[in-house]
C-alpha cells in the first residue's frame, strides 16, 4: 500500500485499530444498564403522567356530511364525474395519463402500475347507493347515459352548486343535471345517517382492515383538509413533524419536512419524488461518512473531540 493512510478513515491502523494497551478505568456495564434503564423509566413515567398523549377523535363520512353538507355534496359530485383528486391521481389508483411524478425518464409510479384500482364513481357513489333498500332509479339513468352526457351533467351541477347560496344542494337553481342531484342527494342522506361509512369500509366483507377508500374520499374534500390545516398538519406547514395539539411529534423528520418548504421543491409538481430522492442520498451519505474523505475529516477540522476527551488531552 503506497502513501499514508488517512487517520480519519475507517481503516484499522494505528492506535485506533489495535487493542488499547494504556491505562484503564473501572467500568460496570450492568450497573450502567441498570442506572440507564431506571433513569429512563422515571423520566418516561413523569412525562406520561404530566403530559399524557393526544387522541383527537377520527372523522367519518357521517361527521363530514353533517358538519359541511355543501362540501360533501361538491366532493361527491367530483367523485361521480371523475374529476376529484383521487379520480385523477394516477398509479396505484387510476391510469390517468400524465399524472405521475417523474424525474426525467424515471417514472417509478407508472412502473408500479395500477395495483389498487379505484373507480371513484362506482366505489364512492353508485355501488353504495345500490345497497339502499329503495335503490334510486337514477342509477340506471346514469349508467345508460353516454360519457359525454355524464360529464355535462356533473360539470353543470358542480358549477351550479358552487354558485348556489352557501353552496347548499337545496339552493341550486333548477337546470339540466340529469340524475346527478338525486344521486348526490341520496348519497348525502346516506352519509349523514352513517350508512355510507359502513358500506365503503366493509366492501362486502364482514372483516376489513383496509381504509384506503374511506381515507381517499375524505381527502378529496375540503373539510378533512381544513381540520388538518387547523392543527398545523399539512405538508406546507411542516405538518410532517407535528402531532395534534401541543404534544411533540416526529421532530426527527425535520429535514424531510424542511425540503417541502423551500424552492425548488415547494413549487415542483414532482416534489415528493425529489424530496424522497434527496433524503435517500443524504441518508446514504450519513451511513458512508467513514468512506468520504471530506466528510470524515470534519471532526478533525472542528475539534469538538477536544471537549469529549478533555481529560485525556490534559494528561498527555
Amino acid at each position: 500500500m503506497k502513501g499514508k493512510v488517512d487517520p480519519m478513515s475507517a481503516r484499522a491502523v494505528g492506535i485506533a485499530g489495535t487493542p488499547w494497551r494504556g491505562k484503564l478505568r473501572e467500568y460496570d456495564l450492568f450497573k450502567e444498564l441498570t442506572v440507564g434503564v431506571s433513569v429512563m423509566v422515571v423520566l418516561t413515567v413523569i412525562l406520561a403522567l404530566v403530559l399524557g398523549s393526544p387522541d383527537e377523535p377520527s372523522v367519518t363520512l357521517k361527521s363530514w356530511a353533517n358538519a359541511q353538507t355543501a362540501d360533501f355534496a361538491a366532493t361527491a359530485t367530483a367523485e361521480l364525474g371523475g374529476t376529484s383528486e383521487t379520480a385523477q391521481y394516477g398509479p396505484p389508483y387510476t391510469n390517468t395519463k400524465g399524472a405521475t411524478q417523474t424525474i426525467g425518464a424515471l417514472d417509478l409510479q407508472s412502473l408500479s402500475g395500477v395495483q389498487l384500482p379505484v373507480n371513484t364513481a362506482n366505489a364512492f357513489v353508485l355501488d353504495p347507493l345500490a345497497t339502499l333498500p329503495n335503490q334510486p332509479t337514477e342509477i340506471a339513468t346514469w349508467r345508460a347515459a353516454t360519457k359525454a352526457e355524464q360529464a355535462k351533467w356533473t360539470d353543470t351541477y358542480a358549477t351550479a352548486l358552487s354558485k348556489a347560496p352557501k353552496s347548499a344542494p337545496l339552493n341550486v337553481k333548477s337546470g339540466n343535471y340529469g340524475p346527478v342531484p338525486a344521486l348526490i342527494g341520496d348519497l348525502t342522506a346516506m352519509a349523514q345517517s352513517g350508512a355510507l361509512d359502513g358500506v365503503i369500509q366493509a366492501q362486502g366483507n364482514a372483516y376489513n382492515l383496509n381504509y384506503t377508500n374511506e381515507i381517499l374520499f375524505l381527502g378529496d374534500g375540503q373539510y378533512f383538509q381544513n381540520l388538518a390545516a387547523d392543527q398545523h398538519l399539512t405538508g406546507d406547514q411542516w405538518g410532517m413533524m407535528n402531532e395534534t395539539g401541543g404534544t411533540p411529534g416526529q421532530s426527527w423528520l425535520w429535514l424531510f419536512s424542511f425540503f417541502y418548504q423551500i424552492p425548488p421543491f415547494s413549487t415542483a409538481p414532482n416534489a415528493d419524488l425529489l424530496v424522497v430522492g434527496v433524503m435517500l442520498i443524504l441518508t446514504l451519505l450519513l451511513a458512508l461518512v467513514p468512506f468520504i474523505p471530506w466528510l470524515r475529516r470534519i471532526p478533525k477540522w472542528i475539534p469538538v473531540h477536544r471537549l469529549v476527551w478533555k481529560d485525556y488531552y490534559r494528561k498527555r
Binding site: 377523535p57 381515507i215 381517499l216
Partner: peptide, 10 residues
C-alpha cells in the same frame, strides 16, 4: 384517530 387518518392521507 384523526392524526393517523391524516398521516395516512398525506
Amino acid at each position: 384517530n384523526f392524526d393517523s387518518q391524516w398521516i395516512a392521507f398525506e
